[in-house]
Design a binder for these strands. Structure first.
Lengths: 139, 139
DNA sequence: CTCGTAATGAAAAAGATTCTCATCACCATT
DNA sequence: AATGGTGATGAGAATCTTTTTCATTACGAG
């Protein structure tokens, strides 16, 4: 029940919000920029403004429905928060993104935060590299 | 020998480049944005253009003198590469940044990259939290 | 010292995101 | 089912960060 998620976030169930949530659920790409979302909706002949896409994604983030990541490139990408947290492996050549979770790293992070007197709220771990695809390896 | 570092990077030793490198070495803040660098230099009555600051920082990054980080907020911060790599703890309230290195995490990252068929080039780990300062705690 | 070329500054351009404001649509209440 | 209040939307302007353009300047090889 998507609409319930929107309602739970204290937001009205409006067409743009429903469409954006649907798109995030059905998209083949898990990581999309605001521009991506906008263009995909326009391609589907949905009437929507870019400003609304930004607003809604920001609201979804605040509601914990979506996570915002600052990858390299100077823009943010959003992804649906399905269940658990995870980190990212990004191919610097083709841009492919893989996800992973590692208990050892998670645990060490909590220990490190404590050692420094920090109360951990969130974290972002991105490993950049060349993926398995031979085309993505330098000659 | 800063100027040698610049020369080694295949760059001419020019006033702006020398001034920026000096500033990065002497700054109390280790993590500065391009805007920061620009303003600091203007405050010191240095004649410099913002475009040059961006150009030089990008060149320094390519030369391995400086590291660029994409923190939250939509802009990049740069820091001088003194010796070793390290990760960051950032206070979400006051913006304070602490650095750390953890062998366990570094090792696991290499293992994870390998498991996924990635050849690791770089990584970025940022832990966000509330720092020790009582003012930075909610409630 | 001179000259070619790389580097610079200023301003314009580009790209990402946010804001403004008049109009519109959810939805609780009739 | 109609309606009104309020929050949401769209379009475009505005803002912010970063890059590009181009005429001018200055490093440094010879």
């Amino acid at each position: 029940m998507d609409n319930q998620d929107i309602r739970k976030a204290g937001l009205k169930v409006t067409l743009p919000r429903v469409k954006i949530l649907e798109l995030l659920e059905n998209s083949t790409q898990r990581h999309v920029s605001a521009e991506n979302v906008y263009k995909m909706l326009i391609d589907r002949d949905e009437e929507i403004g870019l400003a609304t896409v930004y607003r809604v994604l920001t609201q979804f983030e605040a509601a914990g429905l979506v996570t915002r990541q600052n990858f390299e490139g100077g823009y943010a990408v959003f992804e649906l928060d399905r269940g658990g947290h995870h980190d990212h492996l990004v191919c610097v050549v083709c841009g492919k993104v893989e996800e992973f979770v590692d208990a050892t790293i998670e645990k060490r992070q909590r220990e490190i935060a404590k050692e420094h007197g920090f109360e951990i709220v969130d974290h972002s771990l991105i490993i950049y590299g060349h993926c398995g695809n031979p085309k993505c390896h330098v000659g």
